[in-house]
Amino acid sequence: MGFAQLIMAMVSPIIARIFVTLGLSLVSFVGMDLLMDQVIATAQNAWGGLPAGILQLAGLAGVGQALSIIFGAIMTRVLIWNLSKTTRILSSNS
């Protein structure tokens, strides 16, 4: 076995694991992004059906900013969870 074959035998499982992990990360991120887009669209449709007086009071109370913070926190939590799972998969010895 030559030196190049030895290096490829050592590196190819690592490269395969990286590609699998990135694929799982991409699929979970895209799925979560689609889900959050649907939730936001539903909230916007429900928001638009409210009477004008309630919309004005909610705007003064900062409900829109609160919803933005909540949705951003959910996405951040999912990304942190995804990153921890990715590093766990990459660092496993199986």
Rank of each mutant, 00 (worst) to 15 (best):
L60V: 05
S28V: 05
I18L: 15
T76N: 13
L67T: 01
A58G: 09
M10F: 09
R17H: 02
N93C: 03
L34F: 09
G64C: 02
G31Y: 04
G72S: 03
L55K: 15
V11N: 05
M8E: 14
S68F: 07
I74A: 01
T21V: 15
G62R: 03
M75E: 07
L83A: 14
A73H: 09
A43W: 02
G62L: 05
R77G: 14
G53V: 11
V20M: 12
L83P: 01
M32N: 13
S94C: 07
T21A: 15
R77A: 11
A43G: 05
G53F: 14
I7N: 02
G2P: 07
I69P: 00
I70C: 05
L79D: 07
G62H: 05
L79Y: 07
M10S: 12
L50W: 12
F29G: 01
R17L: 11
M32T: 09
V30P: 02
P51F: 01
Q56C: 01
F29R: 11
M36D: 00
V39Q: 08
L57N: 10
L22H: 10
K85C: 14
S28E: 04
M1D: 14
S68M: 06
S92H: 15
M1V: 09
G31R: 03
F29H: 13
W47N: 12
D37R: 15
A66V: 09
L22A: 10
A46N: 14
S12A: 11
L6S: 14
A66C: 01
T87A: 14
M1C: 14
A43S: 06
L55M: 13
I69N: 03
D37V: 00
V11E: 10
L60C: 04
A52M: 13
I15K: 11
G53S: 15
I70P: 00
F19P: 00
W47D: 13
A4L: 12
T42W: 10
T86C: 11
N82K: 03
L90T: 08
V27Y: 05
G53M: 08
W47M: 07
L90K: 06
A52H: 07
G64R: 02
T42Y: 08
V78Q: 11
L35D: 05
Q56N: 10
L50F: 13
L26G: 13
Q38R: 12
P51S: 06
K85Y: 10
L60R: 09
A73T: 08
L57S: 10
T86I: 04
S25M: 15
L35C: 06
Q5H: 04
L90S: 08
A9Q: 14
A41W: 01
S92D: 15
N82W: 00
W81F: 14
L6H: 12
T87L: 15
W81V: 05
L67P: 00
I18E: 04
A43F: 08
S91N: 11
F3R: 13
A73W: 08
I14Q: 07
T21H: 06
G2A: 07
I89D: 01
L6D: 13
G48V: 00
Q65M: 05
N82F: 02
S94L: 11
F29W: 12
Q56E: 14
V30G: 02
